[in-house]
Amino acid sequence: MRVTVDKDLCIGAGQCVVTAPDVFDQDDEGIVELLAETPDESERDGVIEAENVCPARVISVEK
């Protein structure tokens, strides 16, 4: 699994951090920070949920 984010389009909702805190974080301005581009398989459910709940649709997951 490979995760990418488009920081330029992020609106700082923070749903990604709630659903997968070991993979996503937010900078001081609330913009998404990707902590793990290729997260462990145990993170799959949270990463997929983060992709689905992101209101700005800035998370992409290659499965």
Rank of each mutant, 00 (worst) to 15 (best):
Met1Val: 11
Met1Gln: 08
Met1Arg: 01
Arg2His: 14
Val3Trp: 10
Val3Ile: 11
Val3Glu: 10
Val3Phe: 09
Thr4Asp: 11
Thr4Phe: 12
Thr4His: 13
Thr4Ala: 11
Val5Met: 07
Asp6Gln: 12
Lys7Tyr: 08
Lys7Phe: 01
Lys7Val: 09
Lys7Cys: 12
Lys7Gly: 10
Asp8Leu: 08
Cys10Val: 06
Cys10Ser: 14
Cys10Ala: 15
Ile11Gln: 15
Ile11Thr: 13
Ile11Pro: 07
Gly12His: 14
Gly12Arg: 13
Gly12Phe: 07
Ala13Gln: 10
Gln15Glu: 05
Gln15Met: 06
Val17Lys: 01
Val17Trp: 00
Val17Asn: 02
Val17Pro: 00
Val17Ala: 00
Val18Tyr: 15
Val18His: 12
Val18Thr: 14
Thr19Gln: 08
Thr19Pro: 01
Ala20His: 05
Ala20Lys: 04
Ala20Arg: 09
Ala20Met: 11
Pro21Tyr: 06
Val23Gln: 04
Val23His: 09
Val23Asp: 11
Phe24Pro: 04
Phe24Tyr: 14
Asp25Asn: 10
Asp25Pro: 08
Gln26Gly: 10
Gln26Tyr: 06
Asp27Gln: 01
Asp27Glu: 10
Asp28Lys: 15
Asp28Met: 14
Asp28Phe: 13
Gly30Lys: 09
Ile31Thr: 15
Val32Leu: 13
Glu33Asn: 05
Glu33Leu: 09
Leu35Thr: 05
Leu35His: 09
Leu35Cys: 01
Ala36Lys: 12
Thr38Met: 04
Thr38Ile: 05
Pro39Asn: 04
Pro39Thr: 07
Pro39Ile: 04
Pro39Arg: 03
Pro39Val: 01
Asp40Lys: 01
Glu41Met: 04
Glu41Val: 02
Glu41Ala: 14
Glu41Arg: 02
Glu41Cys: 02
Ser42Arg: 05
Ser42His: 00
Ser42Lys: 05
Ser42Thr: 02
Glu43Trp: 07
Glu43Gln: 13
Asp45Lys: 15
Asp45Arg: 10
Asp45Gln: 15
Gly46Phe: 08
Gly46Cys: 06
Val47Ile: 09
Val47Gly: 07
Val47Pro: 10
Ile48Arg: 03
Glu49Ile: 12
Ala50Cys: 04
Ala50Ile: 08
Glu51Asn: 15
Glu51Pro: 06
Glu51Arg: 15
Asn52Arg: 12
Asn52Ile: 07
Val53Met: 12
Val53Glu: 15
Val53Asp: 11
Val53Phe: 10
Cys54Val: 07
Cys54Pro: 03
Pro55His: 00
Val58Arg: 00
Val58Leu: 05
Val58Ser: 03
Ile59Ala: 03
Ser60Pro: 03
Ser60Val: 12
Ser60Asn: 14
Ser60Tyr: 06
Val61Gly: 02
Val61Pro: 11
Val61Cys: 06
Glu62Lys: 04
